[in-house]
Simulated assay, not measured.
Amino acid sequence: MGGDLYALDFDGVLCDSCGESSLSAVKAAKIRWPSIFNEVDAALEQWIVDQMHILRPVVETGYENLLLVRLLLELRIPSIRKSSVSAGLTVDGILENWLELKPVILKEWVEDRDCLIDLFGRVRDEWIEHEFSGWIGANRFYPGVAEALKFSSSTIYISRFADALLRELAGVIIPSDRIYGLGTGPKVKVLKQLQGRPEHQGLRFHFVEDRLATLKNVIKEPELDGWNLYLGKWGYNTEKERQEAEGITRIHLLDLPDFSMKLK
C-alpha cells in the first residue's frame, strides 16, 4: 500500500495560539484579581503579552497562563507582591524554574487549581461566543502550513480545537474523524489507536510535536517503536530542550520549511 500518516499537534506545530491564550489569561486575571490591575496601563499589559511569548514553552495546561500573568506583574510592581519567589526573579528565571515555582505561588496566593481552570475556560468560551472574529484573529498559522495542509497527499490527523481555526484562518477542511481532542486521551493512546486501525496498515507513521516531554513519553512505549518522531523547532520549546533532543536518536529535529515540504 505505502503512503504516509501524519499525526500533528495543533498548538505549536500548525498554529501559534500564544497571542490568544495570553490575552485570554489577561482577561481572566482581571476578573480573578481586579485590584492588582489598578496600576496596569496599556504599555505594561503589552509587556506582559510579549513576555508570555517567551514563557509559552512552560505551559502544559491553560490555567498556568493566569499564574504567569500575575507573577510577571509581581516582577514589575513590588507593592503587589504576595509570593516569596518574585523578588529578584527574572523572566529567564521563570522559564528555567517553572515546575518549582508553580506550587509555591499557588500555595502562597491561596489559589485553587480547578477554580483557575474553570475561570480560564469560561473566559475563553465567552470570548469565542461574543467576539468570534477577535478570538480567531488572536491566533495565527505558521508560515507555509496552511498551503501544505491544503495540498498534502498524506493521511493527516490533527489534535485539539483545530476545526474552527483551520476553516477560518487557513481555509482548510479536515474531516471531524481526523481531529482528536483532549477527550480522546493521552497522545500515546491516540497513536496506538491510529496505528491499529485496519485502514492504516502499510502506512508509514509520523508524529510531529513541539513538546519534548511528549515525545519522550512515546519513546517509553515499545508498541510505538514504528513511529517516526519529530520535534518542531519553531514551536513551544526552548534551546535547552532542542539541544537535549539532538542527543536522542529516535527524535528528528525539524525546521518549518522542511515540515511543509514533508506534508506536501
Rank of each mutant, 00 (worst) to 15 (best):
K192P: 01
T238H: 08
L165I: 13
H130W: 09
E45S: 14
V26M: 07
L67N: 05
C15S: 14
H53T: 08
L14H: 04
K187I: 09
N38M: 13
A7E: 05
Y230T: 00
I48T: 05
L215S: 00
D118N: 11
D118H: 12
D16Y: 09
I128N: 04
D255K: 12
W47L: 08
E239A: 13
L119T: 02
D210R: 05
D255C: 11
L89F: 11
A213Q: 14
T61V: 13
I173N: 12
S83E: 06
R32Q: 11
E239Y: 10
T249K: 14
E111R: 12
T90V: 10
L106M: 14
G183N: 11
L67D: 02
V218N: 03
A138E: 05
S24V: 14
R204I: 10
F205A: 01
V69L: 01
P78F: 08
T61A: 11
L116E: 01
L89D: 06
E131P: 03
S153Q: 15
A25C: 04
D11W: 06
C115Q: 15
E39M: 13
V40M: 12
E168K: 13
S79P: 00
G62K: 02
P34M: 08
V123D: 01
E45C: 09
L55S: 02
G19Q: 05
L23V: 10
E64K: 05
Y6F: 15
R124C: 04
L165N: 00
I36S: 07
L182Y: 13
D118Q: 14
I179M: 03
E244H: 11
D92Y: 03
D255I: 07
G88I: 08
F120Q: 05
P175W: 07
I173C: 09
T184W: 12
G19S: 08
W135N: 03
D225M: 12
G121Y: 04
F10E: 01
Q201W: 13
M261S: 15
G3Y: 09
E126N: 12
Q193H: 10
Y236R: 10
D258E: 15
K240G: 09
E199R: 14
I248C: 02
H200M: 15
L5Q: 00
Y6S: 07
R178W: 08
K192C: 11
V69D: 01
I48N: 03
G181D: 05
L215A: 03
N97F: 03
L23M: 14
L169D: 02
S260P: 04
R242H: 07
L254N: 02
S133Y: 05
L99A: 15
W227Q: 06
Y157N: 04
V40K: 09
L215C: 08
S176R: 14
F37R: 06
G235R: 00
P257A: 09
L263R: 06
P78I: 09
L149D: 03
Q46P: 06
F207A: 06
R204M: 09
G202S: 10
I94N: 01
L203W: 04
L23G: 00
A148D: 03
M261K: 14
A148T: 05
F205T: 04
A162D: 04
N217L: 15
I80P: 01
G185F: 13
G202K: 13
